[in-house]
């Protein structure tokens, strides 16, 4: 048995969030190099501001500007910063109570070395070169010096914030999927049969969804099958590989008990129908890898349509 295949997987998304009145005020302040906090019902000032009072749960309405200087309440040292953090060279994380606030905020301190850090030390904001209305407008904090940055002038209110998120994973295929992917790399379609209910799954699975046991007996399937159902894609989207309109179909390979999703090309989209018999069109062998994309698409065989009863239970 080959070891499970694995491959890097990168996912990313730009989260766009509306801010609401409290955070809008805070982010607009940052765009002006000002830090706005909120005062709660007990008189305590929070910076960043909190949206709702922790005791009365009433929305915050009392906003006050606090200083861009503050005191470190606790800290730790980041010897090897990781992707996305405020600094790429070693720095401290700290909870910093800004002058004029009663509770601390989390941010980075560019202190040079851990030995320069201490609880109680005084720090000041280092502003980003071009503030846009984001927590990253505070590039980091740095040990307090005499130089001061003047606040900027009026700006348009900031109501949205966009946070790009990118994550890296090592994706692992299951042992059953691995067999299937090795098969595809040889131009073969390998399914597996559930030892209990005898159904044939393509791709094979770590557990038969009916019986909860791994599929075991290998079954080689032909690359010919029947369209059970399909949709016509008319909508363009980023990363699309085929020009719309085109057909995305569920193809029930002969001998399988679960349809296999793929493209149907080789005829006008409006001619594709349920029951249509189709065959895989493989890419040139030199382009094959461990992927179902070795099959470029399915094309109509021209044979008579399959009877509805032959695939009715697989819809």
């Amino acid at each position: 048995m080959a070891l499970p295949l694995h491959a890097p997987l990168e996912i990313s998304f730009d989260y766009t969030r509306s801010l609401g009145p409290t955070l809008s005020r805070f982010m607009t302040g940052l765009a002006q190099r000002r830090i706005i906090g909120s005062r709660d019902s007990t008189g305590r000032v929070h910076a960043p501001p909190i949206e709702y009072d922790p005791v009365t749960h009433v929305a915050s309405t009392d906003f006050v500007e606090v200083s861009a200087t503050g005191t470190v309440l606790t800290w730790t040292w980041m010897p090897r910063p990781i992707e996305g953090q405020p600094l790429t060279h070693p720095f401290a994380w700290a909870l910093i109570r800004l002058d004029g606030a009663d509770t601390p905020m989390l941010h980075a301190v560019d202190a040079g070395s851990a030995s320069a850090m201490s609880t109680g030390m005084r720090v000041q904001v280092r502003w980003a070169a071009e503030p846009v209305g984001s927590i990253r407008d505070i590039a980091c904090f740095e040990p307090l010096s005499t130089s001061e940055t003047e606040p900027g002038g009026e700006v348009e209110p900031v109501t949205m914030v966009t946070t790009p998120i990118r994550l890296s994973y090592e994706h692992t295929a299951s042992p059953e999927e691995t067999r299937y992917l090795y098969g595809l790399a040889e131009g073969r379609v390998l399914a597996q049969r559930c030892p209990r209910c005898r159904k044939v799954y393509i791709p094979p699975r770590g557990a038969c969804p009916t019986c909860g046991v791994p599929t075991t007996d290998e079954v080689e399937l032909p690359d010919v099958g029947t369209v059970t159902t399909f949709c016509i894609v008319n909508v363009p989207f980023p990363g699309q590989r085929t020009k719309p309109p085109y057909v995305h179909a569920a193809v029930l390979l002969d001998g399988a008990d679960i349809p296999f999703p793929h493209l149907i090309l080789g005829c006008p989209a409006d001619e594709v129908r349920m029951g249509m018999r189709v065959q895989a069109v493989w890419k040139p062998r030199e382009e094959w890898g461990f992927t179902p994309q070795n099959i470029d698409h399915f094309r109509p065989t021209g044979d008579p349509d399959a009877a509805f009863e032959s695939y009715a239970s697989h819809l």
Binding site: F26, E83, G84, T163
Partner: peptide
């Protein structure tokens, strides 16, 4: 918090 903490990627 996705507004004032997560964008800094504190681990």
């Amino acid at each position: 918090d996705p507004y004032v903490q997560a964008p800094l990627w504190p681990d």
